[in-house]
Design a protein around this nucleic acid. Structure first.
Lengths: 336, 336
DNA sequence: GCTGTTATCGAAAACGTTTTTAAAATTAAA
DNA sequence: TTTAATTTTAAAAACGTTTTCGATAACAGC
């Protein structure tokens, strides 16, 4: 690989001036600056990122921390889309992505140690168990952090408007005539709490009865569990006319339960999902759901994290909330 | 961060000995080795990966090159699962993953230049346009490479048994009584070629008529296009009894087309997918498909790539083929 | 001319490792 | 004992950058 030294000998100039020329310092004349930049381009020079990082303590690498389990993480469409937009935005600013884990290779290391080992400039934490000690260690460390859908004190975060999203969905169901609404929710997390709060709020606002056996805690991304609870809800004598599912993916389980019972989705029972993944519009009948703006969430998270890295003094911590949009599918029928 | 020097002053020994002790060299006494390792652990030492990389030219980073477009890449379940298992295997060997692209930040760079800039030890190429100049440049470079589902001369690759997979599916359809079989295939790629070959072979082996208007080139991962072509196939007077789709995801488009025409999947028209993604078993009726062993493909690719990196002389190039398995869903009905 | 200021450049140190080479300490051989 | 062989340690160079500081040259004002 061609180095600064190669350029310096070819142009009869010192290594220092080449470095300064390429980095746009002012104490090198325009003439030589141009000459050196031209030579660098001709010779196909690219800085050695390791050497640069060693000197500057900046790797231009962002750590991504997420729950790395089967069925979650990369294969989770919400996360995949989020990561995709985060990655695109980061790359346009010159940053690469590194997945941060524990127990790399034979060495035992914590997630935080992994960050230190790779010297990531910042970390984004998403779709993970925010109560784990691994998260705690990173949050209390000295690396800039942005969290997704969870807020820590003195740390920036980007949130989807989960509370409002559910409220809009309840309002929509109400406007379609539904009064008997059940809610199968995801498991313990800040997101689940927010959504539950939104559900309870708008239900009581509409003066609708909230039956405790109609508020069920299942799991995200788990169609089997949703299948089971949906069946359970519909086997009783008094059944809801509309069921909220933990998310679009697990809503498929609800779909199957309803079909298996010989009922029609949108006619006999209405179904509402959450997320707005691709399948929501592919499945039949089309799923009514609330589309989270993963694109915007990822972009804003990246922008914020990079700002925290590059302008630490002028950047303040904030909680950014990104709105989504109601997607009217065909899974909610009209009742009169 | 604690460095070798910190350990050396605390233990009254030179930096060199600390380095050698921690790296298990033989020219340091057992006593001091133990002492230094213990001190390192106590002080929470982790090597500075940049400094090490600068000296050794080994970053313990693997580049991942893939088609980074909307609807492809990370949000593509096949790739996501592949990447997931590749990543897990790589990490257990101490390697991190870096996504390799072109045009990082403001600098214009090719994918290969990106590899050089980040000094990745090896590259895996998957789910991309293998005819692009970017791929060509990497293939002709001096970095160890493993390709997925495409073979280059003198380069190792891991292939899914696409040819055999389709053959098994044709045989299955045949065994269910189907004689009029249509094939909507993905677009130009080594995979599409292999599958087409498998299709034509087993069709002629069964002495089944191959109608040219029943072999349609659509696109992978494109339900809209599949929807269109499925409708087209079923609108004619002479219609196939079984339709092969490019993949499971686009098969949903076929499902919708059939439903929209008032036909029943598995009864009036049978449908066959390819991939074995999660939705294949969630959709109703369950999709008959061929499950690719993404887990195994990812693991083998990682193992091979790391072998090429760590034991270049004793490792030979090879083409590894990974078998999949037929998944009998409910989308293929019996004909007599 | 002389001095002081400014623009331009180079020398050298530093970042944290690894590795080579040489020195010191220990052991074995004579 | 002395010498030779071996083990153990240290010094120093190197990887490719960035950055500080000092040096030189040019130029202005007097």
């Amino acid at each position: 690989m061609v180095s600064l030294k190669d350029i310096s000998v070819r142009c009869g100039v010192s290594v220092a001036t080449v470095s300064k020329a390429l980095n746009g310092h002012k104490d090198v004349s325009e003439a030589t600056k141009e000459r050196l930049i031209k030579a660098a381009k001709e010779m196909g020079y690219f800085p050695n990122s390791q050497a640069r990082a060693l000197k500057t303590n900046r790797t231009y690498n962002l750590g991504v921390m997420f729950l790395d389990e089967a069925g979650s993480g990369l294969t989770h469409e919400f996360f995949a889309r989020l990561l995709n937009s985060f990655k695109t935005e980061a790359e346009s600013a010159g940053y690469d992505i590194t997945f941060i884990n524990r127990d790399m290779g034979s060495r035992k290391m914590t997630t935080y140690e992994h960050c230190k080992y790779r010297n990531v400039d910042g970390v984004i934490i998403a779709c993970t168990d925010f109560s784990s000690p691994d998260v705690y260690e990173v949050i209390n460390g000295d690396i800039p952090v942005v969290t997704i859908d969870h807020t820590f004190e003195c740390r920036s975060s980007v949130l989807s408007n989960n509370e409002q999203g559910i409220e809009e969905l309840v309002n929509y169901a109400y406007s379609m005539g539904h009064r008997k609404i059940a809610y199968i929710q995801g498991n313990k997390s800040a997101v689940a709490e927010k959504r539950l709060k939104g559900f309870l709020q708008s239900m009581s606002q509409k003066k609708l009865e909230i039956r405790s056996e109609w508020v069920i805690t299942a799991d995200y991304h788990n169609p089997e569990l949703t299948y089971k609870y949906t069946k359970q809800l519909l086997e009783n004598d008094n059944t809801p006319t509309c069921i909220f599912m933990p998310d679009d993916y697990s809503a498929i389980g609800g779909y199957n339960a309803i079909k298996d019972m010989g009922l029609r989705i949108g006619r006999d029972v209405s179904v509402i999902g959450y997320d707005g993944i691709a399948y929501a519009t592919l499945v039949s009948p089309k799923l009514t759901t609330y589309a989270q703006d993963t694109e915007e969430i990822g972009v804003r998270a990246a922008k914020k994290l990079i700002a925290l890295i590059e302008e630490p003094q002028t950047t303040f911590h904030e909680v950014i909330t990104i709105g989504g949009s109601l997607v009217k599918g065909e899974s909610v029928g009209k009742i009169n």
